[in-house]
Amino acid sequence: MNFDKEFDASGLSCPLPILKTKKALADMASGQVLKLVATDCGAVKDMQAFADQTGNSLLSTEEANGSYTFYMKKK
């Protein structure tokens, strides 16, 4: 999937993946896509909740070897 920005939150626990996502989205333009990698399994539900509550869209969540990749499109 194409993306405009990415960052790696591997090894970070709740709530850091969410807080870093929020910060990363802050300087992006509407419609741009952020790629985020995390290893905190709690992030799967948290990212969805973040998207639901902020209006950004979680395009996809992929899991491979205990690592989660999220694509979030900015509102």
């Binding site: 709530p15 807080l19 973040f50």
Partner: peptide, 11 residues
């Protein structure tokens, strides 16, 4: 601190 920062991130 966790709840305050998270809530702020959620708007």
């Amino acid at each position: 601190f966790i709840l305050a920062s998270t809530a702020a991130a959620l708007g």
